[in-house]
Write a protein that binds this DNA or RNA. Structure first.
Lengths: 195, 195
DNA sequence: TGTACATCAGTGAACGCGCGTTCACTGATGTAC
DNA sequence: TGTACATCAGTGAACGCGCGTTCACTGATGTAC
C-alpha cells in the first residue's frame, strides 16, 4: 500500500518549504534573486544545505514555485478586485490594488519586476503567463462596461506594463512620491484604456 | 613633469577596456549581468584576471561604464532622431528607432532592460537618468509640434516605459511577431502622447 | 498485538572548483638633467 | 647625447572562501502480515 505521511508530517514539510520561499524573497530583495545560492537560502531558512534538495532540484525550481504559489495569488487577487469594481472605477481599482501589493509585499513585487526581464527564460515565461491573466481581467472589466470589444487586448497588456513598472518605482521610495506615482499611473492606464 | 603615455599606448589601453565592456555584454546576454564574475569577463576579454583592476575597481564600475559610454550613445541617437523627426511622425520615429536599436545591439538592450530593475541601486539610478533624457526629448518633440506644453512630462515617461519594455519583448523572438509588437507600441505610445 | 520492513525529511563530512583579491615582478616607455 | 629614475598595463603564483553536489547515515513514522 502507498506510503502516507501523517497530516502533521506533511504540514511540517510544507512549513520548511514556505520558509525556503520566504528566505529567497528576503535575500533576493537585498542583492537580487539571480545571484542567490542554494546554501545561502538554506542557511537563512534554518536548514542544512543538503536538505534543500528534499524540496527543490535547484534555485530555478524554487523561483518557479514562488511564481506558481505566491505571485499567482497576488495577481489573482488584483484581477478579482478589478473584475468586481463597479462602474468605470476599474482603472483606479487596478492602480490602487497594484500599489497596495507593492506596499504589502515589496519583496515579492521586487522579484516579479526583476525576473520578468531576468536571465531565466523559464521564469520570464511563467511571469508572462501570470501577467497575461491580469491583462485579460483588465480587458474584460473594460469592454464589459461599454458593451463593446473594440478596445484591443494589447491596450490592456500595455496597461499592465505600466502597472508593473509603477510597482517597481514604488519600491524605490526616493524615486517619486507615492501620490505623484499614483497620479501618473491613473493618467497612463486611464489613457490606454480610454476611460 | 606629468607622465604622458603615447597616443599608441592610450589607444591600446582603450582597446582592452572596450574588450572588457563587450565581453561583459556578450556573457551577460547569456546568463545575466548580475551573475557575472570579474574572472569570467577577463577570460572572455583575453586578459589575466589581475589586469581587470587596471581598468575597473569591480563589476559595478564596469556596469557604470557600459551605461555612461554605450547606453548613453544609443539613447542619445534615439533622442536625436526623435527631435529631428518632421511633423507628427515622432511617435513612429521613436518606436522604430527603439526597435532598430534592439535589433542592432540586442546585448546592450538586454542589459538596459534588466539592469533598469536590477539589484544595483547605482546602475538603476544611472539608467533612470539616461531614460529621463529620452523622455524629455519625446516631450519636447510632442509639445513643440502643437505649440503647447499641456501634455504632462509623465506622459512621455510612461511612453518610455512602454518603449523599453517593447525592446525587451523584441529580444524574446518567440513572444510576439515583430509587426504585432510594432503595432502595439505605435498604438500605446500614440495614445499616451495624444497623437 | 508484535515484528520486520519501507519511506522519507533532515544531516555532517567530504569533494573539487571557481571566485575575488594580494603581491611582487616584468618590460616598455616617458621624464629629468 | 647618455643615464638614472618614474610610471603603468599586464602577469603568474598564491591565499582563503563559499559554492553545488555526493554520500551514507539517523530517526521518526507508516505499512504488511
Amino acid at each position: 500500500m502507498a506510503f502516507r505521511p501523517s497530516a502533521e508530517k506533511r504540514e511540517e514539510k510544507e512549513r520548511v518549504r514556505a520558509a525556503l520561499l520566504s528566505a529567497a524573497l528576503r535575500l533576493g530583495a537585498v542583492h537580487g534573486f539571480a545571484s542567490l545560492g542554494l546554501r545561502e537560502v538554506s542557511r537563512e531558512a534554518g536548514i542544512a544545505p543538503t536538505s534543500f534538495y528534499r524540496h527543490f532540484a535547484d534555485m530555478e525550481e524554487l523561483g518557479a514555485a514562488i511564481i506558481g504559489e505566491l505571485v499567482s495569488a497576488v495577481v489573482g487577487s488584483i484581477s478579482e478586485q478589478v473584475l468586481k469594481s463597479t462602474d468605470d472605477a476599474f482603472v483606479a481599482t487596478s492602480v490602487d490594488a497594484a500599489l497596495r501589493a507593492a506596499e504589502r509585499e515589496p519583496e515579492l513585487i521586487r522579484f516579479v519586476v526583476a525576473e520578468r526581464v531576468g536571465a531565466s527564460a523559464q521564469l520570464r515565461g511563467l511571469l508572462r503567463s501570470e501577467l497575461a491573466a491580469l491583462a485579460r481581467a483588465l480587458h474584460t472589466a473594460c469592454v464589459g462596461l461599454r458593451a463593446s470589444d473594440l478596445l484591443p487586448l494589447m491596450a490592456a497588456e500595455s496597461a499592465v506594463v505600466l502597472l508593473v513598472d509603477g510597482c517597481g518605482q514604488a519600491l524605490d521610495t526616493t524615486a517619486r512620491s507615492r501620490s505623484q506615482l499614483r497620479d501618473s499611473l491613473l493618467w497612463g492606464v486611464g489613457r490606454l484604456l480610454g476611460a
